[in-house]
Amino acid sequence: MDIQSCVEVRNEWDIVSARQLGRNMAKELGFGNVDQARITTAISELARNIYLYAGRGKICIEPIDQLGKKGLRIIALDNGPGIREIRKVMEDGYTTSGGLGAGLPGVKRLMDEFSIESTVDVGTEISATKWLR
């Protein structure tokens, strides 16, 4: 496994740093411009969620290589309040942040793989992967 790079998210400017990190890695891996935009949008959404709901946390980006299948994984980690009803936030139309208006289900659709783990009062870990085609 390659070394992952992380960005601490504490304020809105950190969202930009997280995007930059993701874009650089996506470019390096050879993602096209549309996929680059999708990956950075997913990063924006995840980082925004951390900033809005958890206050602080981090976004980590790692390149992956599974038997020659290359891709990029975004991991969003926080020690915030956690999500009580994961099923609800994964429903279309549940967004409250007023961001792009699609929230986590939108992120899931932008990426190829998506998983979420959350414990109330402990925190949330979301991981999303995009494969290089």
Binding site: D92, G101, A102, P105, G106, R109
Partner: peptide, 9 residues
């Protein structure tokens, strides 16, 4: 991208 988001939704 935002329109793409809305389109997929």
């Amino acid at each position: 991208i935002g329109y793409g988001f809305a389109y997929r939704e």
